[in-house]
Structures are given as C-alpha cells and as structure tokens.
Design a protein around this nucleic acid. Sequence first.
RNA 1: GAGGCGCUAGCUCAGUCGGUAGAGCAUCUGCCUUUUAAGCAGGUGGCCCCGGGUUCGAGUCCCGGGCGCCUCACCA
Length: 509
Amino acid sequence: MIIFKGPDVEQKILEQKTVEQRSGEFEQRLEKLKGLRAAGVEPYPNDFKPGTTAGAVSGEFSSLSKEELAANPRTVSVAGRIMAHRDFGKASFVRIQDRSGSIQAYIKKDILGDAAFNVFRLCDVGDIIGVEGPLFRTRTDELTIEAKNLRLLSKGLSPLPEKWHGLKDVEARYRQRYLDLMVNPEVKDVFLKRSRIVRFIREFLVSRDYIEVETPMLHPIAGGAAAKPFKTRHNALDMDMYMRIAPELYLKRLIVAGLERVFEINRNFRNEGVSTQHNPEFTMLEFYEAYATFEDLINLTEEMISKLVLELCGSMKIAYQRTEIDFTPPWTRISVKDAILKYSNASGDIFTNKEKAMQFAQGLGLQIPKELSHGKVITEIFEKTAEHMFIQPTFCTHYPIEVSPLARKNAQNPEIVDRFELLVMGKEIANAFSELNDPVDQKERFLKQQEERAHGDLEAHEMDEDYVRALEYGMPPTAGQGIGIDRLVMLLTDSPSIRDVILFPALRR
RNA sequence: GAGGCGCUAGCUCAGUCGGUAGAGCAUCUGCCUUUUAAGCAGGUGGCCCCGGGUUCGAGUCCCGGGCGCCUCACCA
C-alpha cells in the first residue's frame, strides 16, 4: 500500500526501480501529479460537492431542445471519472461517468480560463473531476455541460483498460473487480439487480410480519446442514470454532423463543469444491414461520419468486442461457417417488426394498457403498435420473427421512418427510420443510447421524445437545426454508457462473 | 482431485517451418475551439507467466511448476 504524502514521496516512487514494474504511463502520470503540485493545485481535494448526477441531468433535460437551452440556460454540476477524452487542442470533449450513468462535458479554453484549462491539460482518462456549467446541445444534438468551472478531484496514476474492448481477461476481472465494474456496464447491472433482489425479498418478508435477525457466524458446532466446515480458532476463549455452514439451528431456537417469524440473509461457509455453481462463501436466505407447514411455504415461495421475477424482469418469462423459463404460477408439484417413476424405468419395489434399490442404482452406473441407507440410495437415484429434468420451476416433495434429519416425518409414511426442493434449470433453488419439533425424535435423528459420522461420513450432521434442549421447551409447529441467493441471482441475471454474481469470488493466492 | 484449453506492450489481440518482437486502442510530441472508437503526422513502450532442457539459435519444441477458464467428480 502506497500512501501519498507529498512531492517527496512521489519523487521516491518515481525513483523506485524495484519490486513492481510500472508502465511508462504510470511514471508520466506521476510527473503530471508533480506538475500540479508545483503549480499549487491539490490533486486530491475533498471540498467539491456535485449538485446532481449525470443520470439525473440526462433524464431531467432530455426533452429540452437546443434553442430552449440557449434561451434559458440551466447550470448543473456533476462529478465523476473521465471515461473518454477527445482533444482539439484548445477545446476538448470528455465523458464523465458517475454512479448513475455518464454525461459529456465540453472543455473550452476561452470559457474555462487559462488556469483551469492548464489543470485540465494534466488530466487523463481515469481521473475524477468535477465540472460546473450550463447545458447545451452540440451539433449532433448531444446534451453537454459547457464547463465554466473544472476541478481535478482525484488523479489516477494507473491507466484504465481500453475504452472499446473493455476488460475481458476473466482473471483480471475477478481480481480487479473495481476495473470490471468501472468499464463494463453490464457487470454493474448484474450487481444492481442483485441488490434489488435482496431488497425485494427483505421487504416481502417484512410485509408478512417477519423480523430480520442475525445469528452467529462462528459456531462451536457446525450444524444445520450436511457440509464440511472451515475450522478456526478463538485465542482468548482457547477453543476451536467453525464458520457456520447454516444458520438453521439458531433460527429455530428463536422460534422456540416465541419470535414466530424470523429470517436471516447472510453468508454460509462450506469447505468444499469451487466451481461455476459453488463459492466457499455464499449468501443464504433462511426463514421460519410458526404454525405454517411446508405446503404453506410452497404457496409463499410461488408468490414471492413470481412477483420478484415480474418486478425485476418485467415479465414472468425469462431466458436463462437461451432457455425460456416461465415463472407463471402455479408450478408443477411432484414427489421424489413419482419423479423417479416418471423419468426412469424403475419399478415401485425400489421404494420398499433396499436391495432392489441398490441393484437399480448400480444399473444406472452409480457407485453405491454397501452401508448407504435406503433413503440415500433413493436420493442418488432421484438425482441421477430426475432432478436435471426439471427445467421449469418445479416443487419436488417428500424426500427420504435419512437425508432430512431436521425435517418432520410425513404423517402417512414415516420413511419420508414433509419437505420440498424448488428446482429450476435442474438446479436446487430452494429447500424447505415442516420442521421436526419432537425433541425425542430429533435426538434419535442426531444419534443416527452420529453413527454415520463414525462410519466415515464427514458431512453427517453433528449432535447439538443445546438445540435438542431448546426443543424440549417446546417449539410450535413450524416450517422453514432456505434459498441460495447467489443461484437465484444467477438465474435472474442470466449469469452462467456464480463468480459473475459475487463481487469478489474466491481465487487462489 | 482428473482431463482439456489459455497466459505476448497499460488494454484487446496477431505471431507462419525454430532465425533480430507485431497491430489497434491508450500514452508522448506537433497541428486542430461542436467531437462520438474524432482526425492527420511522428515517437516511446516487452521478465513473450516462472524454472529447467533440446538447439548454433526457443514466444514457438520437450519436462516441471504457478495462476485462470471449461468439463467431470463432491456439494448448495
């Protein structure tokens, strides 16, 4: 980190020939910086306050003609980064970009005066400037600020990526996301949409009397999901801790507490592979509602997401990687069992006979260890044969109990639970169930998970005695749901990789 | 973790059979007071990702390594 304190330091940087190879342009800009200071111009002042934004100007005055602007001048001031520069010697056009968009400014020596014009001559593409002056329209009818005043607000030393091609190198785009956002407008659009998505969900739940809470990210026990945690250490407490893999068990403690409707939008951390679908830290929405069942959440989800899609995209139909997806409710509902029967030639007895299920799974080419439970075999079969078939929004319901240790048993069939996953483009977008609130049953399920850990399943849920203790005080019948925000954003922004919707995705080094 | 592809100027990219490192944009100098990737003329700029090897000679061929992307496996 280099801190600029004044000319001495700048001279030192110029003289540095070690460590980092600087471009020639970096040195040229440093020389300009020195020239500015020599002329008594502070290159990093903080006393300029823009009166408006580029976007507001173009919006507000878009209808005014050249003649109207000339007859009745409107003076504005904006600040932003110079993104383009067309120089005519004693006059120049610059494109100034701020958070709202961009606007052109005309810098004319006669109008600006010698002193400010000399400052401008030391400005480059990438510098931040403030401009004030009346609006006019050029010969080509472009709304333009005629600079009467101009201030350099921040001198840039490193040159920007090229104006026409932008920054394409994927690695540079992720590592230097600030450049990506600066020069590639469509990237900024994705993150603006991400912000709108999160805000919509937050407002939707708040309007239904939910409260937003924050529960620990550092857990003594990594519970609430089947995943490998990151391990860390608290020095003062002298104890190992885990970055949370899910907030579920804490949120349900709050249901026990009587908060009845809670949600949290926050990061989960899973120490697993990185891919176009997986980042080690990702954002999860979880919400829990007392006196609701998983079927109530099906309705809620259908309403929330379809309204979100309509508001965000202006239509219930969107394209994801050239496939049309129609979010118009109601969405298909199908049980795991029916899905397998529909999309494979399995016979009904694989659901009652584990051996038949094993045989069938092996016939599909699945490598199934002998000790795998019947329910896990069924789940494997489902994922192999059916899951990827659900391109349009589909609720897949009633998963096997062995893969759902926190979910309530189905009243008719104790082999399955009252749970659904929302699948779109063959991928899981949401996972929800009626919560298990029977403390004795919950304890047994944890014990079963412990057995599986002992048999080498490192992702089996850990026993959480305090969570069971909470249930022993009585939890109202409740339904809860998790939605992977990153994947939802991918879907709604037509992004093929999760890295495209995470500002700073995990990279090596 | 396995396989495939990539890494050359600040950015986007060429680089033939192994023979002195190229273009456009940016930058610098000059001209130009309504341009739209402004224009014209002339310049500067390189650890060809790193390290070995083969060769008279390697950006190019071989081996090892780094980083990234894609596919697969695990996972949400």
